[in-house]
């Protein structure tokens, strides 16, 4: 790791100010992505601004038919939250599948979606839940937030403060883990709610997480695994690597979607 300076932000505004004080600075939350990258000398921020102790970014609240998860909330907190288990058990289930206990107790939902790893679990849920990403300066619809591999709509110094969504009537998540990393080789999050059916697919897309229009259409009239029979995914839009070819991932998208619907 290269030398770096550590700053602990006390508020969102403080964080933005601290970040702005140096050019090569970065926010750090759980550090579960950033720190290993730094240790491998693939990232070299001169300054780290820690967001984990900012009160307004912490905690889970359910009110007025809306769920709000602070960006600094850890995966373990989401997995164990009785509020989340009541409002959207599939999301608690998703959080419980991320990494291992160490990772779940450090990694945060804000860090995960800001990082937008194409194999991360949360982005699929954000798309399928039609979530809103609340930043220090605006609200961004999940559909507009994830813009490509490790790319988001965030400005360089913009902070994810929270995510909000309306609990779906039904939701399910099914993940096929990569045998090595146990990130999602393919993960599918399905929901049915006031806005209809939404299907978010992670791990498989060549451009990162995506919504599966054909599946949404098929499920709109009949929210059952059988409705997905015959719905295919074009392998040319999918990732191919040493762990799984695009054809294999296309198959996994179908299988995980069926199982997610069955679980919803």
């Amino acid at each position: 790791m290269y030398e770096t300076n550590y700053h602990r932000a006390s508020s969102v505004a403080d964080a933005v100010r601290l970040k702005g004080a140096s050019e090569e600075s970065k926010y750090v939350s759980g550090g579960m992505t950033l720190i290993p990258t730094m240790k491998q000398r693939l990232a070299a921020p001169t300054d780290l601004v820690d967001l984990r102790h900012v009160a307004e970014m912490k905690g889970i609240t359910v009110s007025g038919g809306s769920v709000r998860i602070g960006a600094a909330t850890t995966h373990a907190e989401v997995a164990q939250s009785s509020d989340i288990k009541a409002a959207c058990p599939a999301l608690a289930h998703l959080a419980s599948l991320i990494g291992d206990p160490h990772v779940r107790h450090m990694g945060t939902i804000g860090g995960s979606i800001a990082n937008n790893d194409p194999a991360a679990d949360y982005p699929s849920a954000m798309l399928a839940l039609g979530a809103t990403i609340v930043t220090d300066r605006r609200e961004i619809a999940a559909d507009d937030f994830f813009t490509g591999l490790f790319e988001t709509a965030l400005a360089d110094d913009e902070i994810v403060v929270a995510v909000t969504f309306r609990p779906p009537e039904r939701a399910g998540y099914c993940k096929f883990p990569n045998p090595a990393s146990r990130y999602a080789m393919t993960g599918v999050f399905v929901t049915r709610g006031a806005d209809g059916v939404r299907v978010g697919v992670t791990g498989a897309g060549a451009d990162g997480v995506f919504r599966h229009a054909a599946m949404e259409a098929a499920l709109a009239g009949n929210f059952s695994p059988q409705a997905l029979a015959g719905v295919t995914t074009d392998p040319s839009d999918l990732l191919s690597d040493i762990h799984g070819s695009a054809e294999y991932r296309a198959n996994l998208v179908a299988v995980m979607a069926r199982r997610a619907v069955a679980a919803a």
Binding site: A180, S181, Y183
Partner: peptide
């Protein structure tokens, strides 16, 4: 080497 860490080398 494509399998240079545990992200890609499955133990």
């Amino acid at each position: 080497l494509l399998t240079a860490s545990y992200m890609d080398y499955a133990m």
